[in-house]
Design a protein around this nucleic acid. Structure first.
Lengths: 82, 82
DNA sequence: TTCATACTTGCCATATTTGACAAATCAAGA
DNA sequence: TCTTGATTTGTCAAATATGGCAAGTATGAA
């Protein structure tokens, strides 16, 4: 399989975040409120939509706010490239 | 528990990458050779050392080269903050 | 319609990642 | 020692993530 496009990966990660956030009944504002270091809903929105190629540290902060392992957010379909 | 410091997260992710790469018997040069889109050993080195806060797409490319799920690279110790 | 809440989008400034190359360092052999 | 391969480090330019704020959009309730 051809390697997944960048936009696809970002989209899946964003969907993961949004899904978990909604499962927990949180708004974007709630979420950023749980994060010690500042994060703006602007960024959450862009990340959830897959418009931004977030850094691992940002995703980690989000995972902490959602109280899930970082790896859960990073659960992207995988196939051996070649 | 206080939230994990940024540098710690990056270090753990970097160690994960390095460990998996070595388990597969690959050099950094081998690794970048497996990636379609260019990546330099410069970046691999800095990411493995936790000196760089890599983006999720870069980590995804690395995960593909290592033939492991992205989530395995992102396996960072988790604890409920607060 | 009006209002409130939630989310998205546009823009800006700053910081940092990334790709690239060269040079330096390190380790293991011959 | 010398050489080779592997990794690290420095520097640079270009691209982009981030934080911040304001304005726009969407939805639903009153």
């Amino acid at each position: 399989m051809a390697s997944m496009k960048k936009s696809e990966v970002l989209k899946i990660v964003g969907q993961n975040i949004k899904r978990i956030r909604l499962e927990k009944g949180l708004t974007q504002v709630d979420l950023v409120g749980r994060i010690e270091a500042r994060i703006d809903t602007t960024n959450i929105s862009r990340i959830e939509q897959g418009r931004t190629n977030a850094t691992i540290h940002t995703l980690f902060k989000i995972s902490q706010a959602l109280e899930v392992p970082l790896s859960e957010i990073c659960d992207v379909y995988f196939s051996k490239s070649v």
